[in-house]
Design a protein around this nucleic acid. Sequence first.
DNA 1: GTTTACCTTTACGTAAACGTAAAGCAACAT
DNA 2: ATGTTGCTTTACGTTTACGTAAAGGTAAAC
Lengths: 123, 123
Amino acid sequence: MTQLYSISDLSKEFDITPRTIRFYESKGLLAPRREGQRRIYTSSDRVRLKLILRGRRLGFSLDESLEIIELYNPDNNNKKQLKTYLEKIQQKQYALAEQLKDIKAIQKSLKEAEARCIDALAN
Amino acid sequence: MTQLYSISDLSKEFDITPRTIRFYESKGLLAPRREGQRRIYTSSDRVRLKLILRGRRLGFSLDESLEIIELYNPDNNNKKQLKTYLEKIQQKQYALAEQLKDIKAIQKSLKEAEARCIDALAN
DNA sequence: GTTTACCTTTACGTAAACGTAAAGCAACAT
DNA sequence: ATGTTGCTTTACGTTTACGTAAAGGTAAAC
């Protein structure tokens, strides 16, 4: 009894157009089943879409998002590949740490600007 | 004795092309002095460029970056404007907090994937 | 004095991420 | 049977953020 979704279900839930979802499919980021012509999305597809949109919010390209998503499920069989995966994972972790620094720097500047604003308003 | 920079100074320092810097100028993000034809950048221009690139790393559009940069120096004279600025600053702070959540979520997933990788490699 | 280096403008080209219009199938509602 | 709703494909259009030639100015270097 796993949940299934139509394209408009998902487009409404995530406030994107069906076009966007189809575009992601055309780029290999999604691969829903078909029932006749219609696309049928599983809850696993839905999670994938969620992850893609999270990447989008962070300024990742679709390729980057795809790469990251694929890092979540390493193929535990191939030891050689596993090492490569591990390196990629750690590279991404480093990049994310940098991004975190950037955000915190902006937050700091905004806090200072906020304080100056409040101060000027109180005089 | 304040530092001055040529366009190639800055392009080398930040590893971007002169074209990129000129493009930012054409979009109103930079406004260097001229010495004849040549562009002369002050250290304040340099900081602005740094901020633009930080925004770029975070997936901000140039318009967004410009908006944020302008939030750093509120005009303390106009009380009415100050209130608007304050609201904008707080909106950005909220958005950044959300972005931070996104990053931490990815970090968590990557940590788990990393652990599974290490585990599989150790068996 | 002309190469060389560095800068300039103008302008067309391009990749990514969709938007949008056209034309049509398929099922259900009237 | 026919409109409405919701989906489909195809394909050209658009915005953002630059890339990339083309053609030339200027000034130091040889």
